[in-house]
Design a protein around this nucleic acid. Sequence first.
DNA 1: TATATGAATGTAATATCATAACAGGTCAAG
DNA 2: CTTGACCTGTTATGATATTACATTCATATA
Lengths: 173, 173
Amino acid sequence: MTHQHERSDCPGCAAPELAFSAHDHAHCAADALARAEAVTSAAGVRLTPVRRRVLEILLEEHRALGAYDVLGRLAAEGFGNQPPVAYRALEFLVEQGLAHRIQRLNAFTACIHPGEQHAPAFLICRNCAAVAEAEAGPARAALDAAAARVGFTIERSTIEALGLCPACRESTS
Amino acid sequence: MTHQHERSDCPGCAAPELAFSAHDHAHCAADALARAEAVTSAAGVRLTPVRRRVLEILLEEHRALGAYDVLGRLAAEGFGNQPPVAYRALEFLVEQGLAHRIQRLNAFTACIHPGEQHAPAFLICRNCAAVAEAEAGPARAALDAAAARVGFTIERSTIEALGLCPACRESTS
DNA sequence: TATATGAATGTAATATCATAACAGGTCAAG
DNA sequence: CTTGACCTGTTATGATATTACATTCATATA
Ligand SMILES: [Zn+2]
Ligand SMILES: [Zn+2]
Ligand SMILES: [Zn+2]
Ligand SMILES: [Zn+2]
């Protein structure tokens, strides 16, 4: 796994389960935004106002937002109010590795450690809706092995889990 | 892994990648349907005409069909032509373990070895749209471990891979 | 500076996927 | 029979997503 940033500086790398922990989220979000600037600048693509604003909106919480939730926010702020406005910005963020799509929720969440090439697993709390990225290396390796055994070539894979985060497990028990 | 049927009799168990192999599919489908009868009868639920027909439709090919594809077929055969007709039958089949929902495709595929409690990984060919069930035990174990490490309790998980099946890999290279 | 170019955004229209709510029919238990 | 649970049909609506085209913006030349 190669990084474009130092592990020691990256809250996401230090604690991918960040979404479930108390933490300085203002710093967490500002950090991700700063990384996003760096990543896009390095890639020679533009983090335009809409795109940047969508990322900020996703970064407000460690949750996944539907495209129409994002669109509502954008429209209220004077951006376009038609679906493509939101979908295009979200697609851009996903392509650049700044956000992830959560298939189970038909929704999008900001990446907590952009800049690193990664394909994490997602842990989705069914009670509080928090979404955390989890280490998916071993699971992916096992899946690759199973696919290879039958001659299937994996190009993209989705690993998502629904359940209870530590806090909700406590409170609902 | 416990079975309600013998491994030696079960094409699905013998070759979960069946979808990618030449095989006697008429037998494969008839077999799955027979198992479905057994499973539902044992569970005390009813495999009504609509439900049975939906399963037959899904069993025609090792692909995933959208609810509206199924609905179109049903309507053409004199069943109801409104979405709930298809969604309810599909929901029933999924609940009974006779079909699976493919999140990535918003579509449904017949289970190739119903009767066994299982949560497989799905291998989806982006070229021919075939969907195979793959052994997900090790991948799930790895995911469980990653989740446990951060205190997350998994209740349901989705493992799906998109890529090329053996045949399409050959033909497109 | 002018102007060509491609990228990004805005908008209308439409397609696709999914559920809520209620009415009527079927069937077996009491 | 009648009751009650379950299943089916239908209307209506909601939620998610894409196509197509017009317009604006940034930037790189001439
Ligand atoms: Zn945070
Ligand atoms: Zn990420
Ligand atoms: Zn078959
Ligand atoms: Zn199955």
